[in-house]
Design a protein around this nucleic acid. Structure first.
Length: 288
DNA sequence: AGGTCAACCTGAGCGC
DNA sequence: TGCGCTCAGGTTGACC
């Protein structure tokens, strides 16, 4: 699920159960996720305290109070759920989760925190990963050094888009999904932002006028803020009845809506495939 | 240098 | 009930 808004929602949901708490017990059920977990991962984490939670691109940064950071990428299917130690509904929770395909066999890590929260990381496809990095090395770390600007920051400006898009022949869509350009967008929100900005996804990135890039920058921010807002307001305390974090039912304009009317002009939304990914767009609003 | 595409891994949904 | 097929929100590395 996770693009920037989902990651941000999960970060916010984890904050109250992690911040200021210690890892009392860490259960590691396999040695690797997408990549091998750090050596002695569970032992290294145990006893340490969480100072604060941050986000960079699609990474959740769990800052420990000794200057190291637990960086988490959710991949495609990574998710956290929260229960309470000794929760007598735990069995029921498991059953619910099972019915909903969140099978416990993909529960890879279980963090028991001081304060009693039990935070479980589940990831069926195992495209997610975690790593421990000294705080001051993050900027140089292989996962982080190439990342582009944060889309919600002032760094995402028409001037920035214009300078990075110059000379590009590939799709604007591919350009926006490139984490080296803008960090945090994925297939859904790129489709959404292009629709809001009324730009055809197949246009070459280098051939978009400055005013339209300006519209695009505004649309990217608006779409992300709306989604984050929806996550926050829908989840309330960010923990759903089944204990899961971070899901919210979004109201997408075009994504997943092939054949349904465009919210702007009622024309049927179309779907096509670009470099293996589905692109949803309105052929009327996004003509050029 | 830029761009495309298969691969990583598992589950859900659908047609039969 | 089950089989086979397609698709999935991410990222990388090999290749043109």
């Amino acid at each position: 699920m996770p693009e920037l808004p989902e990651v941000e929602t999960v970060r916010a949901g984890l904050e109250p159960v992690l911040r200021g708490r210690r890892f009392v017990h860490v259960e590691q059920r396999r040695k690797d996720l997408r990549f091998p977990l750090p050596e002695r991962f569970a032992a290294r984490l145990t006893g340490r305290k969480v100072a604060k939670l941050d986000r960079r691109a699609k990474y959740i940064l769990i800052h420990l109070n000794d200057g190291e950071v637990l960086a988490v990428h959710l991949g495609m299917t990574g998710r956290f759920s929260v229960s309470r130690k000794g929760d007598r509904d735990a069995a029921q929770l498991g059953e619910f989760a099972h019915e909903h395909g969140n099978d416990a066999k993909h529960d890879h890590l279980v963090f028991t925190m001081s304060g009693g929260a039990v935070v479980t990381y589940n990831d069926a496809r195992r495209f997610g990963y975690m790593t421990l990095i000294p705080e001051r090395e993050i900027a140089h770390d292989a996962f982080f050094r190439g990342l582009g600007v944060e889309p919600l920051s002032d760094e995402l400006s028409p001037a920035y888009l214009s300078s990075r898009a110059r000379g590009r022949k590939s799709d604007l869509k591919a350009f926006l999904m490139d984490q080296r350009i803008v960090a945090g967008l994925g297939n859904i929100y790129v489709c959404e932002a292009l629709h809001m900005a009324r730009i055809a996804p197949g246009r070459a990135g280098g051939r978009i006028s400055r005013p339209r890039l300006g519209r695009l920058a505004v649309a990217v921010k608006a779409v992300l803020l709306e989604a984050i807002g929806a996550g926050g307001s829908t989840l309330r305390d960010y923990v759903q009845p089944n204990g899961e974090l971070g899901y919210f039912s979004a109201k997408w304009r075009v994504y997943g809506r092939e054949g349904l009317p465009c919210p702007e002009c009622r024309t049927a939304i179309r779907r096509r495939t670009d470099s293996g990914r589905s692109t949803f767009f309105c052929p009327s609003c996004q003509r050029t």
